[in-house]
Simulated assay, not measured.
Amino acid sequence: MVNVDESPSLRERYVPAGWPGMRGKRVVVTGGTRGLGEGVVRLLLAEGAHVATCARRSAGLTALGDSLAGDERARLFTDALDVTEPGRLEDFVTAAAKRFGAVEGRANGRDDMDGLDGLVACVGGSRGGTFEQADGADWAATWELNVGHTARLVRAALPRLRAAGGGSVVLIGSVSGWKPGPPAQYGVAKSALIQLAASLARELGPDRVRVNVVAPGSMLIPGRRWDRMRREDPRAYEAFVGAELPTGAPVTPHEVARTVVFLLSDWATGVSGVHLPVDRAQNAPSPDGY
């Protein structure tokens, strides 16, 4: 059984794999201070990319920056914002592109290099409880957080992706988006991302923009749901893992992050329109699955 507390340190885990074409790429990641988002940001920086990330709380962004040193810290741009607030996400994308353009422009003696090479729509979540408990506002908020913010991110970044000659977009779905389990509003929103990726892959293909969706399974993240269950109710945790995860352990954020960064890299230039589960062959998404 994997134990979170026995996992290697962040600095040891996020070692560059040397994927072709990642060094110097300019990537925007929403929700990059915790869990999977943080893992993606750290791995991208380790691979030599310039990364812009946002989160609602400035404290998390400050902690992320303070944990980095030297060149990695210099290649990180952050902003505190709520991705559902009108205009703020679009302003963040513009600011990130200008920041990247200024850095690259100084290196190349040009002032017109504010393109982007990649996006990761990592912010997500759910509001409301069961179907009977969740009202219309809960459904709308869950949709906006997962699907609305993703659509707005891609739309805001599209001119910059075109300016760079194309790029890679990775949407973060969930095992709940293709295997049934409550809450329904979350599963429905995540399932919409599968359709969105397939549709945008076709529509944006002529612009050399690839779009894929990665669907993580239940991730073992310190302090989050599965880690709390493992510590507070180990019998229930072991029953869930034993019944639903044939490998005997949930997937780790780092395993998912490696898949995301692979799809952003030039090793994946032939991959677009794909729904890619990273879940260790998980069955039901939770102990409450059907």
Rank of each mutant, 00 (worst) to 15 (best):
G136T: 05
G136L: 14
G136Q: 12
G136D: 12
A137H: 08
A137I: 08
A137Q: 13
A137E: 15
A137N: 14
A137M: 08
A137D: 15
A137W: 09
D138P: 11
D138M: 06
D138L: 00
W139Y: 03
W139F: 12
W139L: 06
W139C: 03
A140C: 08
A140L: 12
A140R: 14
A140S: 15
A140I: 11
A140Q: 11
A140D: 15
A141M: 10
A141N: 09
A141P: 10
A141L: 14
A141R: 14
A141T: 12
A141I: 10
T142R: 06
T142A: 09
T142E: 06
T142H: 06
T142D: 13
W143Q: 12
W143M: 14
W143Y: 15
W143R: 09
W143A: 14
E144M: 07
E144C: 03
E144R: 09
E144Y: 03
E144P: 02
E144F: 04
E144N: 13
E144S: 10
E144A: 13
E144Q: 12
L145N: 06
L145V: 14
L145T: 13
L145P: 11
L145S: 11
N146K: 01
N146G: 07
N146W: 03
N146P: 14
N146A: 13
V147Y: 00
V147D: 05
V147K: 00
V147S: 05
V147W: 04
V147Q: 00
G148H: 01
G148V: 00
G148E: 05
H149N: 15
H149K: 03
H149R: 07
H149Y: 03
T150G: 11
T150F: 01
T150A: 15
T150L: 00
T150P: 05
T150C: 13
A151F: 12
A151N: 08
A151K: 14
R152C: 10
R152P: 07
R152V: 10
R152Q: 11
R152F: 01
R152A: 14
R152I: 07
L153C: 01
L153H: 06
V154S: 07
V154G: 06
V154Q: 03
V154Y: 10
R155D: 09
R155G: 02
R155T: 14
R155V: 07
R155L: 12
A156P: 01
A156C: 10
A157P: 12
A157S: 08
A157W: 02
L158H: 15
L158D: 09
L158Y: 11
L158E: 15
P159C: 09
P159D: 05
P159T: 04
P159N: 05
R160T: 00
R160K: 13
R160V: 02
R160Y: 07
R160C: 09
R160E: 02
L161I: 08
L161M: 06
L161K: 05
R162C: 13
R162E: 13
A163Y: 02
A163T: 03
A163H: 00
A164M: 02
A164F: 08
A164L: 05
A164C: 09
G165W: 04
G165T: 10
G165Y: 06
G165L: 09
G165F: 00
G166H: 03
G166T: 08
G166C: 02
G166V: 00
G167S: 05
G167L: 00
G167R: 02
S168W: 04
S168M: 02
